[in-house]
Design a protein around this nucleic acid. Structure first.
Length: 669
DNA sequence: TGCGGCGGCGCC
DNA sequence: AAAGGGCGCCGCCGCA
């Protein structure tokens, strides 16, 4: 493998516009390139526009794989600048290999600095590197680039040290399997297709949002004598409300409503749920606040739809040539479970509550005519999904699996007692009604909340937070009963939690000499990988990892712990654990295997789509979105249903259900 | 002025 | 003993 790293400069703001717009821009150019041959440990770096030495030209041509940290960046720079402008040898897409993706499948962080720290790979402080980027890669105030041979030479040194650290990381972690690498390539192809946005709609929406935001700002300013000027100034808002308090009964009630608990300490919050409960109390005449405080909270409620900022992101990220946003998906972005994640224009958290195609078009026309829109912010947020559109002559075909996690969890338990639940899915029986019956209650909503909240070891707290989303209100003592009843009706669940934790611990203790089964997954241990890595092998043969995994003894028993990619230590942290630690208890393990298995299933189906030339442009964990020619839409809808409902050999008995639909714009379904 | 932390939003 | 977790982006705020 040749591992390389490009340093570049451009007038385009990379984080704002995304890689594709960046690499396509005429102002973008290469500053330097450093390459390392892992076969013979030779390396070569040079400044542009010097020619690439012939021997390295040959090496690059002959390489089996070309690796880079975030290879998508280097690939686009190579293809769009290196090859056409500097006659670098072409590298076919399938040869590119992403070492950041390799880090993630090893459950390490995705960026070089953090991954190196977590994996204990030597890596020099990158502070100077960041300075150099600022100096050389970003235009100066007058719009021109700084030209300095000395700084360029220094940049090359920095580039070299990054490549060395990347090589070390590549060696310290396991490589992606061929299946994983192929899945990464499939994801790259989808990223290249991109997803089209309705530019006119997004433009109109940003215009209306800006006007509304300034109006809300003016109202806030007037209401609070200029202390608060924007609805997002939460700190000032909290101060304002606290400042208005006189410690009477109402204030104590308000404080109680605002108090949340996070990591064992109290915090005051005014998030949406809390605002809602405050407003409910006021409307029920249980809470009386000063008029300005009440107005403030209500105003905040109307104003808060920060999600409309996505329209702006659509505009800066879409390619001006074809209005498509590219590169929005990260293979195994979730390092714990290998689920995909989404970046740039985050397509994994688009507000569900939205207009359908006709309503969206009507709203768009209203905005184009500059007519007023009621409930501006809320209305705009309902336009987010419909702002994604198929190209002319195309349709979206969208399929999502019905209750995939609720099916996968009991199936993974491998417990005969879970067959009852699986049979309900197989026969199309409403599991939420059945769950409500099990609880001795008639309310489907309560059954639904229990089903959604209690599968992963959660108890009263889990139920309560889920219940809020569905308007279910139950006193604590009743929730406790619900939890007990649900667990009694689903005995396979607690057994599975316990056996997962037990098998995982046994695997760690066995130090790799033996594997241990829990339901349909198997735990094993790799003592020499990343400080000792617990590996969970899923039914499809793929695995998720728990690096730096060990058993810590305490007076209350043994705790299984491992490194958690998402928790960064502060700089200079020399505590016992060099990185954030997570405790692996049964509930967490059951959730991990379920999410991971569902992600594996999705990847499997994306392979089928790739094979069948079904053009996937996006997906959201349990949902696949095709953009297909209108004349093929009906055929592809049937094909997608077949793909999503066909049960793989390794998943016999798992009931899969999906009913794709054809859409003119993206939406809720 | 830039950057990281944090609170907040939203999804599965 | 008890335990909801997996993500990413925006904006404010305090610090360097």
């Amino acid at each position: 493998m040749i591992i390389l790293d490009y340093e570049t400069r451009s007038k385009v703001d990379l984080p704002a516009s995304g890689l594709h717009v960046y690499a396509s821009d005429f102002s973008t150019d290469i500053i330097c390139l450093f390459m390392y041959d892992t076969d013979d440990d030779t390396s070569c770096g040079f400044l542009m526009p010097k020619c690439m030495p012939m021997v390295w030209r040959m090496k690059l041509k002959a390489a089996t794989l070309v690796g880079a940290m975030n290879a998508a960046f280097d690939r686009e720079i190579h293809d769009l600048i290196g090859v056409p402008d500097y006659s670098f040898p072409e590298i076919p897409d399938y040869k590119w290999y992403c070492i950041a993706a390799q880090c993630r499948v090893n459950a390490l962080p995705s960026n070089l600095d953090d991954a190196a720290r977590a994996a204990k790979v030597p890596n020099k402080k990158s502070q100077r590197g960041k300075q150099l980027i600022k100096l050389l890669s970003i235009p100066q105030e007058d719009g021109t680039f700084m030209e300095s041979l000395d700084l360029r030479k220094e940049m090359l040194e920095y580039c070299k040290s990054d490549v060395i650290a990347t090589v070390d990381l590549w060696r310290a972690t396991r490589s992606m399997t061929q299946v994983e690498h192929n899945d990464w390539l499939i994801n790259e192809r989808m990223n290249t297709r991109g997803v089209k946005i309705d530019r006119d709609l997004a433009l109109a929406a940003t215009k209306y949002a800006a006007a509304e935001q300034s109006e809300i700002g003016a109202k806030l300013t007037a209401l609070t004598d200029g202390l608060i000027t924007k609805p997002t100034q939460y700190q000032r808002i909290k101060e304002y409300i606290l400042g208005s308090m006189e410690d009477d009964e109402n204030d104590r009630k308000l404080l109680k409503l605002m108090t949340t608990h996070k990591n064992d300490h109290k915090k005051l919050s005014l998030d949406r749920d809390i605002r809602e409960s405050i407003i409910t109390s006021i409307d029920a005449d249980n809470l009386h606040l000063f008029e300005d405080v009440e107005d403030l909270i209500r105003l905040l409620h109307d104003a808060s739809a920060s999600s409309v900022a996505k329209f702006g992101k659509m505009l800066t990220m879409a390619d001006p040539e074809d209005d498509r946003v590219r590169g929005a998906f990260i293979h195994a972005g979730a390092a714990q479970t290998h689920r995909f994640s989404s970046k740039g224009l985050q397509l994994h958290n688009m507000k569900r509550n939205c207009y359908d195609s006709e309503e969206a078009i009507a709203m768009k026309e209203v905005m184009m005519r500059n007519e007023p829109v009621p409930d501006v912010m809320q209305s705009l947020s309902k336009l987010l999904r419909p702002a994604l559109v198929p190209d002319k002559g195309n349709k979206y075909v969208v399929g999502d699996w019905s209750a995939i996690e609720a099916r996968a969890l009991p199936w993974l338990s491998g417990d005969v007692r879970a067959e009852r639940k699986l049979n309900m899915f197989r026969r199309g029986i409403d599991v939420y009604i059945e769950a409500a019956k099990d609880l001795g209650l008639g309310e489907r909503q309560v059954g639904k909340v229990a089903e959604l909240a209690l599968g992963y070891g959660g108890a009263v707290g889990a139920f309560a937070s889920m219940a809020k989303n569905y308007g279910v209100i139950k006193p604590d003592y009743e929730v406790k009963k619900i939890v007990v009843s649900w667990r009694n009706a689903n005995p396979w669940a607690a057994t599975f939690w316990h056996s997962l934790e037990s098998a995982a611990k046994k695997a760690v203790r066995a130090r790799g000499t033996k594997s241990f089964k829990a339901g349909k997954v198997v735990y094993t241990f790799a003592p020499n990988l990343l400080g000792g890595t617990l590996i969970c092998v899923l039914p499809d043969g793929t695995g998720i990892q728990y690096p730096f995994c060990s058993i810590e003894h305490s007076d209350r028993g043994d705790n299984l712990v491992c490194l958690k990619a998402g928790i960064k230590p502060k700089a200079g942290d020399t505590s016992k654990h060099h990185w954030g630690v997570v405790r692996l208890w049964g509930g967490l393990l059951s959730e991990n295997v379920t999410q991971a298995f569902c992600a594996a299933l999705l990847r499997d189906k994306l392979r089928d789509c790739d094979w069948l030339d079904l053009p996937v442009v996006a997906h959201v964990h349990d949902e696949i979105i095709l953009e297909t020619a209108e004349i093929y839409a009906y055929r592809d809808k049937k094909l997608l249903k077949e793909v999503m409902e066909s049960v793989p050999e390794y998943a016999q008995g798992l009931p899969l259900k999906a009913d794709p639909i054809i859409l003119d714009r993206y939406g809720n379904h």
